[in-house]
Design a protein around this nucleic acid. Structure first.
Lengths: 128, 128
DNA sequence: CCGAATCCTCTTGGATACTG
DNA sequence: CAGTATCCAAGAGGATTCGG
């Protein structure tokens, strides 16, 4: 399959761009895919997510979760207990994103070493 | 398949992150995937790419191409003619990325409308 | 525990002008 | 044609502090 076959309604020339771009604008940020990946196995609480993702700040976790909720990819459930408890969970739509993510992750697992090697060589060739 | 099954050598808890993150750090920028997509059908020259991608600046095209070349995803061929001519082409490794990209693009085509609708509703609920 | 608000820094990336 | 170099604006994102 060619990428150009994907944009039936939209483009004529190189607008393969548009579609790819629009996804990247959603999930291409620093944390979105990680949050989705972290929700792979079921509902998770806020601070649990925070520990799980490692490196994410409270602020960015909140922002990322809001964005994903806003786009209908995750759902937020508040238990009005004291202290409060909030569960985040993938929606039906959100779960369908796991496929592409796994495809990317699998690719990464296979090719990360190759890429790192390539970078090594590239970095050492200009000099010396 | 679960995402957690992917990280055989690396992690123990939520480090599903690492792998996904490392790819995103490579191709998650504003232009990399678009350049790769643009090279889908074969070798392309610099300014041809520039027109094809639409919106990319000369500077960013150069930077993006260097990065992808450095990582061994594309190859650069210089024809020392006057005026000079440079062809960019996906490498073997680079072509394998087309699969995951297409998976993402396909997902986007299916779900972009759903996402936009979700955002509409989300935006209108707080107020009113 | 969950989150909002403020501040401040660093990176990304666009515009422009110049070279071989 | 195919870049490189410089300048600059905008935004992403971290640290910290406060609130329910």
């Amino acid at each position: 399959m060619k990428l150009s076959e994907l944009n039936f309604p939209i483009s004529q020339h190189g607008d393969d761009c548009r579609v790819v771009r629009e996804i990247l604008d959603r999930v291409g940020d620093k944390w979105s895919l990680l949050v989705i990946a972290a929700l792979d196995e079921g509902p998770v609480r806020f601070n649990q997510l925070r520990r799980q993702i490692d490196g994410i700040s409270q602020r960015m976790l909140t922002i990322t979760l809001r964005g994903l909720e806003r786009d209908g990819l995750i759902s937020r459930t508040l238990f009005p207990t004291i202290p409060p408890r909030v569960d985040y969970e993938l929606t039906e739509v959100g779960r369908t994103l796991l496929g592409p993510i796994i495809a990317l992750a699998t690719w990464a697992n296979k090719n990360l070493d190759v890429i790192k090697d390539a970078r090594q060589r590239y970095g050492s060739s200009p000099e010396a």
